[in-house]
């Protein structure tokens, strides 16, 4: 076993031979968008992301379904599964089967198996001082989903944020494999700073985040300032604020966004200083237009996060 429960990483990793290790992960959740087909895509992209975040290549998947069969029409389930299947195909992954149960609340997701070379596993906990931090998707999906619930988001914005959430982290992972990467994770429910805190804990390093460089879905700024911040963001902040210091000039809105829980967010990568610019350029050239350098790993052993 290379990575298991004791490490609490994005996925478990088990060495089969000197050349091949298995990556296994499972993730499912309740609907975050109204459209069942897009919900299927987002849930699948989110589950696959954990394999990408380990630097691996997903190979097979199994459906996990909980469905309120009495209250809901089966066509809804068909559309969800179709969304999942289409996303799985896009990832070049094979669906092997699955399991469904009747439940009061609808849930969908995947268990995913991938492969990786045992020496090339990208764990969360390998920040190296001097490394630069790169984020590959803009933040703000939790806040915008709250605005969607309040019926305040335009159809265009709803569509835009849906596409961000459904976007695979496959290309980002493939591009990152060509560079000198220290650590990687994907940004999901704990928000940017929550996931960064997981990387920092036990690393013996600290990090500085340049808040002005963090990619943000523009509309999230306005909705955050109006109070459409999900409870999860406040919980994330309460949980990690002992590690985090914001400079006085970082507006509250941006602080909220840094803790905003993301659905199927981007990869958060630490890359050696000499490779950092080239990685961001390669990501942008590869269609990941929002990729940005957002900070730096510092040789301070206090394990703090400074947001400036």
């Amino acid at each position: 076993m290379l990575i298991g429960l004791d490490r609490a990483d994005d996925a478990g990793v088990y060495r089969i031979t000197d050349e091949i290790a298995l990556i296994q992960t499972v993730d499912f959740f309740t609907p975050i968008v109204d459209d069942p087909y897009w919900f299927g895509q987002i849930a699948a992209a989110n589950a696959l992301s954990d394999v990408y975040a380990m630097g691996g290549v997903p190979k097979t998947a199994m459906n996990l379904v909980a469905f309120p069969a009495k209250e809901m029409d089966l066509s809804v389930l068909r559309q969800i599964i179709q969304g999942g299947i289409d996303k799985i195909k896009e990832a070049g992954v094979v669906l092997l089967g699955g399991h469904s149960i009747v439940d009061k609340e609808l849930k969908y997701g995947l268990s995913v198996t991938g492969v990786i070379h045992p020496d090339r596993v990208l764990a969360k906990k390998n920040l190296r001082s001097g490394d630069r931090l790169v984020l590959t998707k803009p933040l703000g999906t939790g806040i915008i989903n709250t605005a969607i619930k309040a019926a305040l988001a335009s159809p265009e914005l709803t569509d835009k944020v849906t596409r961000f959430m459904a976007a695979l982290n496959r290309d980002a992972a493939r591009i990152m494999a060509q560079f000198d990467i220290g650590a990687c994770t994907d940004v999901t429910g704990f928000g940017l700073l929550g996931h960064l805190a997981e990387m920092v804990c036990g690393s013996g390093t600290s990090v500085r985040v340049e808040s002005g460089s963090v990619p943000v879905i523009t509309e999230a700024l306005e909705f955050a300032s109006m109070g459409f911040v999900p409870a999860g963001a406040y919980n994330n902040k309460t949980f990690r604020e002992y590690m985090v210091s914001f400079a006085e000039n970082v507006p509250r809105t941006l602080q909220d966004i840094c803790f905003d829980p993301q659905t199927s967010g981007g990869l958060l990568i630490s890359v050696s200083e000499t490779h950092a610019l080239a990685l961001v350029q390669a990501l942008k050239a590869g269609g990941i237009k929002d990729a940005a350098l957002i900070g730096e790993v510092l040789a301070y052993p206090e394990e703090k996060i400074w947001v400036v």
């Binding site: 955050a224 300032s225 109006m226 109070g227 459409f228 911040v229 999900p230 409870a231 406040y234 509250r252």
Partner: peptide, 15 residues
């Protein structure tokens, strides 16, 4: 009746 509502109502008012 929640901390989240307290924070968000504060933001809404100030905006």
């Amino acid at each position: 009746d929640t901390d989240t509502s307290k924070e968000n109502v504060t933001r809404a008012a100030e905006s």
